[in-house]
């Protein structure tokens, strides 16, 4: 009886496998790729986040929760709060700049549209570090702005434009703005113009038409853009390094320091896991409110 059942089961499995074979051959290269480059490193990060280190900074493979316990340190919590604040501000400013920009772009002639797209994407051809150094030479105490203001006699002492929250947010917005503009632009482009005409026809003045029709129908672009901006803004430690000096500590900075300076990989891994969880929660919230993963993948 048992052996017959077993042969039946293997027969069933073989049939299933045969039927799935063509699909598997198509999917497997991608799957192998994903497993090697994403799944394995992530599992490794998760694994070592439960480990500790010895005096020589070697990873000790023994289960412990101490890395996660350290997360509740007040200074660390304030860094998290700070990170969320900076990322939130970056997001908000990106929306305020990106939405009008995307609107103008979508309503332009195809030629102007292409031109604006080129200007938007052009900075990507240069490393963002180099571009941020550019900002430093503009904002620095001997930089462009200060020397112009001084030569005009408007100020005597150079303004402190670098090494503060303002500079960090400016850098973040500068680096991440395209990621806000593109999803919004896509949604506005797809917006059915007759809906706007219908709203006008029914007596909506431009401002109310925007609030009641345009904004609700393009909010998915704002959500998608916010995800694309908020998540990197939590982790872009080089921006806060260059623009904030030591003044602004973000989660990204702490993580980078654990790996590069403190050689406490397990603790860095635990911090990374928390960042991943925050990311997943945000993406989940996005899809739950009707956002589409495709709109994020378009990047």
């Amino acid at each position: 009886m048992a052996s017959r059942n077993a042969t039946q089961t293997t027969g069933f499995l073989r049939r299933r496998l045969q039927r799935a074979a063509p699909l598997l051959t198509m999917v497997s290269p991608v799957t192998v790729w994903m497993v090697i480059l994403i799944a394995v490193p992530l599992i490794y990060v998760l694994f070592i986040s439960f480990c500790s280190t010895d005096e020589a900074h070697h990873i000790v493979f023994a289960f412990t929760l101490q890395n996660y316990a350290k997360l509740f340190d007040p200074t660390l919590l304030s860094i998290y709060g700070n990170s969320l604040l900076i990322a939130g501000l970056t997001c908000l400013i990106s929306i305020l700049i990106g939405y009008p920009f995307a609107t103008i772009m979508a309503n332009s002639s195809p030629f102007k549209r292409t031109l604006m797209m080129v200007f938007l994407m052009l900075p990507f051809w240069t490393n963002s570090l180099i571009r941020l150094y550019g900002w430093r030479s503009i904002l620095g105490s001997n930089g462009f702005i200060n020397s112009v203001l001084q030569s005009l006699g408007l100020i005597t002492q150079p303004l402190e434009l670098l090494y503060n929250h303002f500079a960090v947010v400016l850098g973040m917005v500068y680096v991440l703005l395209p990621f806000m503009v593109l999803p919004i632009y896509t949604v506005i482009l797809k917006l059915d113009h007759s809906l706007l005409e219908a709203a006008s026809d029914l007596g909506a003045r431009p401002a109310r038409r925007f609030l009641k029709v345009t904004l609700p129908l393009t909010s998915s672009g704002i959500f998608a853009g916010s995800i694309m901006v908020f998540i990197p803004a939590l982790g872009y430690f080089f921006v806060s390094n260059l623009m904030g000096g030591g003044t602004t500590q973000l989660i990204g900075n702490v993580i980078a320091r654990q790996f590069k300076e403190a050689f406490n990989w397990p603790f860095g891994a635990a911090l990374s896991i928390v960042l991943i969880i925050i990311t997943l929660v945000l993406v989940r919230a996005y899809t739950k409110t009707g956002g589409k993963m495709d709109d994020l993948g378009a990047m």
Binding site: D192, S194, L195, E197, A198, A199, S200, D201, L202, G203, A204, R205, R208, K212, V213, P216, L217
Partner: peptide
Amino acid sequence: FERNVNTVFQSYALFPHMTVFENVAFGLKM
């Protein structure tokens, strides 16, 4: 929005984010 004429559009142009009630009420709300 200042003209006392209203239009029925070829593709209906109903607001997809509003219910039937909200769609019909739109003109009055304005």
